[in-house]
Design a protein around this nucleic acid. Structure first.
Lengths: 247, 247
DNA sequence: TTCATTCGAACATCTAACGTGTTCGAGGTC
DNA sequence: GACCTCGAACACGTTAGATGTTCGAATGAA
């Protein structure tokens, strides 16, 4: 909780003094310092003498921060997506924080899963009915997503019933997009290797277009998102034949 | 502690009653039941009405159990092996519990690492100077080791300075061996793709030969083990030109 | 250099979480 | 039907973690 407040305050100002932060969150400066320590280790800010500076450049929010944001919504989306999967299916699970909540709902299901990040693989490590196959590849620090030729090779030799993808941006016009070129390529390969494509995103991603283009909206079968999704986008998606579920 | 006692008692008898176990460890039956719950989830035993039955068949001890055994020794071996690696090297890290202790000593080192199990990958997830590349492959439940054609393919396209291997059995005569055929094949491929082979094993593995043969002792450059290693084996290894370090 | 400020180690305190034991009703087993 | 086992629920004690305070050292500005 306190961490969220600190990050939020940092987002709107350059340099915020330790004393100021202590006042805002209502605790001692020592406690703030300890908070700043862990947040710095997570790469969410940089400490300077007497203050903290945000490292969030506006491009890509680090995983540690995203995983804390809108958790309730992501859990609901995760449960809904889990409900779309049948026992025995082979599934690709993307690496984002929303899809991670999907994975958490699959621990007692019988599935074959190919996770696209270590976070997701970790969530399923104790799931003894899940047959897990890793694609391999370079592990992006922080994000812990798999990228590179090794990862893409996995989709040359395997086929899947369903791909569950997250996205940094999504719109009916430009389709799915990601911040990182490597990740975009992997998502793209996952789409090509899967019979069905399910997109799990919270409503804030709508209308945004990120750097790396993954694919057009036509290849998407189902979109699961929350009710705050812009009506116009939802309508356009439905016109394009995409099933949209608001949870 | 209590868990070790329970497992030890189970090893020497078929079926042990809950009441008996409570007496041995000196606590209530309810506590024993709770212990049995977690041990069953770890796959170390099976619960039956009124008692517990060992699942340890004598072949392969589950990872959860091995990771608890001889921890101090494994830590020492881990530290010694970490000292053998130079900054900037590319390293294969095997999946066993001994090599896991090597990985724990590498978190602040600058290396390229290919882990052969999720446990090891996990230990290095926060190591921001370590470039981690995963081989991919099937994830063996419990063990969380990577096996199969996808894993072996990784060694077709990559070469390494050093392979750090554990083993289920090791002797100067029969060389390295593993319990699982798939794991044996992966270890074998790792040896072929690496310029130097370091074996990290505690002394109890000496003289044992497991089902799957990995390779002859000639390909091993260094063996790191503890001082309880049988002298005869050590002498034979040194005769074969293997450097043996006792820690 | 000096002075003011910030930092973090060390200790004290408090709280929440965990482990443990007891009780008791439900569900098995003989 | 009698007996036993199980696990949920509650109570209790312990402990680890979080927080605040103090103080000497380190840092930066004048």
């Amino acid at each position: 909780m306190r961490h969220e407040v600190i990050l939020q305050r940092l987002r709107q100002g350059e340099r915020v003094a330790v004393g100021t932060l202590a006042e805002i969150v209502g605790c001692s400066e020592m406690t703030v310092r300890r908070d700043l320590d862990v947040l710095e280790r997570e790469g969410l800010l940089r400490r300077v003498r007497g203050a903290a500076v945000s490292t969030l450049t506006g491009e890509e929010t680090p995983f540690a921060a995203r995983a804390k944001q809108r958790l309730e919504v992501k859990r609901r989306i995760g449960a809904a997506v889990a409900g779309l999967l049948d026992d025995g299916e082979t599934v690709v699970l993307d690496g984002g924080s929303t899809v991670l909540e999907v994975a958490r709902r699959l621990v007692d299901r019988r599935l074959t899963v190919l996770p696209l990040s270590l976070h997701v693989a970790d969530a399923l490590r104790t799931a003894n009915q899940v047959r897990m196959v890793l694609p391999g590849g370079d592990v992006r620090p922080g994000e812990l997503a798999f990228v590179g030729p090794l990862t893409e090779h996995a989709f040359d030799v395997m086929r899947f019933d369903t791909a569950v993808l997250g996205a940094c941006g999504f719109s009916a016009r430009t389709g799915l997009s990601a911040h990182d070129l490597g990740e975009g390529a992997v998502k793209s390969a996952a789409v090509d290797a899967s019979a069905r494509v399910v997109v799990a995103i919270d409503s804030t991603k709508f209308g945004r277009t990120a750097f790396s283009r993954v694919g057009p909206v036509e290849r998407v079968d189902v979109v699961v998102t929350d009710e705050a999704a812009p009506e116009e986008e939802v309508a356009r998606l439905r016109d394009a034949g995409v099933e949209v579920r608001l949870v």
